[in-house]
Nucleic acid binder design. Sequence first.
DNA 1: CGAACTGGTCTTAAAATAGGACTAGACAGT
DNA 2: ACTGTCTAGTCCTATTTTAAGACCAGTTCG
Lengths: 150, 150
Amino acid sequence: MKRTGFAKADCPVARALDAIGDWWSLLIVRDAFDGLRRFGDFQKNLGIAKGMLTARLRTLVELGVLEQVAASDGSAYQEYVLTKRGHDLFPIVVSLRQWGEAHLYARGEPHSVLLDPAGQAVGQLVLPSKGGKPLVWSDTKVKKVAVRKR
Amino acid sequence: MKRTGFAKADCPVARALDAIGDWWSLLIVRDAFDGLRRFGDFQKNLGIAKGMLTARLRTLVELGVLEQVAASDGSAYQEYVLTKRGHDLFPIVVSLRQWGEAHLYARGEPHSVLLDPAGQAVGQLVLPSKGGKPLVWSDTKVKKVAVRKR
DNA sequence: CGAACTGGTCTTAAAATAGGACTAGACAGT
DNA sequence: ACTGTCTAGTCCTATTTTAAGACCAGTTCG
């Protein structure tokens, strides 16, 4: 049966996952953050089937995460670049990176690292509060919206 | 063919997506953050097929994101609760929420909201820098690790 | 005790994915 | 201008994954 969708959910987490929560979209976006722009670059770097890549790029463009522009090298080809909406995915990619670094590597196992302008590893993402102390899960609660009748 | 895996990737983003980047895992985790604990609660709230839920809960337990504990109400049943590793997923869920809120709702369309202890909507996740100004994508670069020969 | 609830397993049909063959247009070398 | 290669796809097929529901054993409720 058709995969369950959450495009109409009241929860933004569900909608976000519906849009970009598949196996490939965020890896394509990660590669775009790393500077990849061409179809063939994504395809070679990810090892993704070309049909899959075509479909994913199309939905990312439809979502407004990527846009197709004329190639920067003057050739007649197209390139895919991140839009504003795509750049806003940065915290998602960073949070995934930080969780992966913390929990998915053995001691001493090498992995890529995100550096700040000075070449230092970046710190942890924080959720600021008025008081200055970062909020953690137990500080927060979700306000649900009223269920709308149809 | 079998879905491509990234469990051995050098990139923590890829490993994280390999572990929890499917259609259901993060929604289950979101529900766990919202206080759900029982198989039936997850199943009813998500509308997920029971077989899928069984499989997802099993892999989340194997990953150490959830653990099974005796039910808190004294019954003979089990409950699933977040571990430390599970709680560390909070920034991922929050970043998805914030992107969804910003880009996936029409003006005025209602959605659930994350509140701080004072009942105020929380602020944006930030990536702190030494200088105090939050880092954005264009400030950062990824240091790749040397490709290891096998 | 019997009924309903809980937490699953198993089966089946439909959809998504991986992988590769194939193709049209662009480009580079001769 | 001709040939070969590169680019960016499309299309096809085999396999895997998912959705949905039937079924079932142990637990709790009345």
